Structure formats: C-alpha cells, structure tokens
Simulated assay, not measured.
Amino acid sequence: MTVVSSCSVYADHSVAGTAEDAQVLPPLAPGTALTMENYGEAKTAIEQWARALAADKSHLCRAGLIGGPGDGSDRYGYWPARFARDDDPVLVPDIPADSTQIIDVRDLAAWIVAAAESNVTGALNAVGEPVLFAAYLEACRQLAGGKARTVAAPGEWLAGHGVNYWAVPDSLPLWLPPGHDGFSARSNSAARGAGLRLRPWTQTLRDTLEDERRRGLTRERKAGLRPDTERTLLAAYRAQPA
C-alpha cells in the first residue's frame, strides 16, 4: 500500500537535516473537520490507518514541497515568474542563508510507481536537495534575463506590514516563520537509497518558468504579492527614516 503523505506530519520543523525517525504530530481525532491548521495531524492519522491496514507492507511517501510544470499552488513558480514579469525592483525577504527544498512532481510520480514495483516500504522523506534561498533567487533572476534588482526587507518589517508567509495571496512564497529552519532542509538519504532519483533543481526551475510563461506572467496567483501590493510595500520600505 502506498500513501502519499507529507513532511507536515513532523512535530518539529526547527532542526535541519532531520530524518524519518523524528517525532510526528498526534493523529487527528475521527470526525474532526479538516483545516490547514490541522493538515499535519490529518496526515498522521492517514499514516496510522495505512499501517493498521497493511502493517509493514505500507509505503508512507512523505513528500516535501512539490513543484514543476503545472503547479497550481503558484509557490515555487512565483519567483522566476516575478523576475520575468518586468524589470521593476523585486521585494524579497532578507533570508539569503535560509534553505529551500523542492521535489519535481515528475520525479515524485516516477518514484512512487518504481517504489511500488520494487516493494519499497516504510516511511520515507520524498524531498529534493536543500538549496540556499540566495542561490535559488539568483538562478530565478538569471533565467529571467538578469535585469531586475532586488530589495531585501527584514522579516519583522514584512510581517508587520501584512505580508504573509509561504503560500497564500499577498505572500512571499518559500519564506517561513521563525523556528522553521528544518522545514525545507530534511534528509532524503533514505529515499535516495530506496531508489529516488532527482533531476537538477535548475532544470525544474527552468521548466517551471517555461510553464509560467505559457500560463501568463500577469495572471492572478494563489501565492505571491500582487503587483500593486508590491509597489505599495516598496514605497513604504523606501520611505523609512534613515
């Protein structure tokens, strides 16, 4: 039995490099309505049910952030699309040393099938390699033509001006609250040992930008800053006393 679970099952996201033996959240109680706030607990409950049904024959595929062409969440693609949209200054969170971590949906799908065919079992983190936010951002800028400059604002300032974390409207995708140093830096060693194959993250990024161009760089997005919101925030940031 294969269950596509999530690294959101883990109780602690503060430590980079943690593996599958990290503590998970308690399962969501039966009958509880599902919300984004209890998503991790819901995934823990699903994992428990899978183990109860299939015992040691279950493969709990704990996916991380999934991206690539066709990504409807608009998260990973926000930054390359933003640099490609125009050459105006780009507001970014001042987190150059923070980690990003993506798994290409094509690699994830291929591994789920291959793992089932080869009887892979157990809980395994299906995540990509950690990439520093600064390196990811520069790759986005270069792919888009390398003309737009960035304006880096501290997290406290962004949060105080209503910018959301991670993946909702008027957010800065991949930016996380304090205490999430390990959220995008989990170990994938066990999964790679079980056959997970990952294409270079730069290839995923390039294909993502091509897909963003096809879908429209000025379309309304589920994640990221709207152009008017970004311009207002940039003006406010520049107007601060020296």
Rank of each mutant, 00 (worst) to 15 (best):
R238L: 13
G40D: 14
R75H: 10
L176M: 12
L196V: 01
G31K: 12
R75K: 14
T150I: 07
L65T: 12
C7E: 14
K57L: 11
L198P: 01
D88H: 10
N164M: 13
R186W: 05
R197N: 09
V113C: 08
S99I: 06
L174C: 00
L172T: 04
A135S: 14
S5E: 13
G40S: 04
Y39S: 01
D94L: 06
P26N: 08
T208E: 02
E210S: 00
N119V: 03
L28F: 10
E210C: 02
G179S: 07
A22H: 03
W79H: 03
R231C: 00
P200I: 02
A33R: 14
N38K: 01
G67D: 13
P80H: 02
V24H: 06
W49S: 15
D211P: 00
G40Y: 03
A153Y: 04
A45C: 03
L217D: 15
T204Y: 06
T2A: 10
L143V: 07
T232M: 10
W111H: 15
A236D: 15
R141C: 06
A191S: 13
A110E: 05
D104K: 00
Y10V: 00
D94R: 07
T229R: 12
E41S: 09
A126L: 10
V131G: 13
A159N: 05
G145K: 08
I95Y: 14
G182V: 04
A235F: 04
R149H: 14
E210I: 00
A235W: 07
G195W: 04
S118T: 15
S99D: 10
N125S: 10
D12Y: 05
R213P: 00
W79G: 01
D88C: 05
T18W: 06
R62S: 07
A185M: 01
A194C: 06
R238D: 15
P93R: 03
V151F: 14
L124K: 07
V168W: 14
L172S: 05
P96S: 04
Q101I: 01
S8N: 13
P27A: 08
V168E: 07
A54S: 12
P227A: 04
S14Y: 05
A55S: 15
A45W: 05
F183M: 13
L108A: 09
P130G: 10
A55T: 09
R141M: 03
A167Y: 08
Y39C: 03
K222M: 07
G224S: 09
S189E: 09
V92C: 03
